[in-house]
Design a protein around this nucleic acid. Sequence first.
DNA 1: ATAGGGTTAG
Length: 513
Amino acid sequence: MTLKPPKPTFTIRQLNQIQALIITDPKPHILNPLLKTLIQSSNSNTQNAFLIYNQMLHHPLAYNHYTFTYALQACTLTHTHQKGLEIHASVIKCGHLHDLFIQNSLIHFYCVTRNDIFSAHQIFNSIIYPDVVSWTTIISGLSKCGFFREAIDMFAAMNVKPNCNTLVCVISACSGLGSLKFGKAIHGYNLRNFHEDNVILENAVLDFYVRRGSPESARHLFVKMPKRDVVSWTTMIGGYVQRGFCEEAVRVFQEMLQTKETEPNEATLVNVLSACSSISALNLGQSVHSYINSRNGFWVSNLVGNALINMYVKCGEMGMAIQVFNMLKDKDIISWSTVTSGLAMNGYGKQALQLFSLMIVNWVHPDDITFIGLLSACSHGGMVDQGLMIFKAMSVYKIVPQIQHYACMVDMYGRAGHLEEAEAFIREMPCEADGPVWGALLNACRIHGNERMFEKIKQKLIYMKGVSAGTFALMSNTYASADRWEDANKVRNDIRSMRLKKKAGCSWIEMKN
DNA sequence: ATAGGGTTAG
């Protein structure tokens, strides 16, 4: 990655000096900035920051209301939920809960560490005169938690003048909601009320148009932006990928390299690699890989490394995928799972299971998606016994099988020709079978020429509730069987986005209570 | 000396 500026480090001696100050010369206006520097220096200093904070709290002269905002910032930056709750309690105990800066810090803390919009909202409601930061923070929190509509409603309810930051949050809520009407209204508001260039706000607007508007409107905005930075370019590329304009995304990336306006960063590379994966463009993917290698001092993070692995997997180049995998210093669960399912997809079922053993030996804990890869390895490799064993092993890792796992099992039985077992498996499932599950069985009927069962299930599906989701999934499976991975992935993405929407809707009811 | 903002993998 691009070289980051060196962050200040603290020696043990300096830490001791701060600790001595707390006792000998407890002045908050000296100690607080030291605490701030410690927090903002690096994540590895967080424990030291909390140590200093604890000691300051034990000396009534050493801290004041500023101290809590710094401590809360440390929790937010490092996602330290428990410590934040403790700080919240201390704030109450010390009688500082009505400090607006602390309240705003708390709103942000609850949104970021646990997506706890409920607690955040409680704090917000306790503020008598919320300022523009309070409003912006709660709007941002709602939007980040998927309550796009509520974020926009909050914006409409504001009784103080919004600023650029507020607009950034609400326009990103419009992107999330997919409301062209609201988004354009916010864009118009922006043009009428803010005249100075703010590249962050421009990028948020750009993101809205590239994801929700026409590609031309996004392109138009992009071209006439007074200032473009790496995020502007990445937004274009990422947005085009999401919309399925993968060739266009790669073109923008090449344009970025040619114009040399800014250097791509990690996010840019992840997005362009994702474009290459979607269209199985091996040559383009390799050229991105070469570009990465050509950047001296570029440290290949897991994010980029995994994106590379995924690209090679989707292009069927398992050799290269494994080569990148071996290069990664700290392989994470995604690295392992990507290669595992890659092996499965490319017909190396046995090797996928071997890799799983290696993963366990390396103390990497499998998750639900790992098991989807493993089960599909068994189903494509005709390894029914192993598949059953893997399925049972899920409980060892405390993973409750989801509908996708059941679909894999049905697919496994079905492909192996055990149609009766597959049907029995569906009957004994603890949850209702959905489209992909029936689709797997239908597919099996087709492979093994069991027309009687095929017709029976087809009739059943027609009368099923939620046919649209089922039909989608069925299409996904049919595509997959015809080796049209591209279309299958696309349909699967549609399902994924449908599911996300549904989730947000459910939570909204919870919040009202 | 305190709070909020845009792009990131299976």
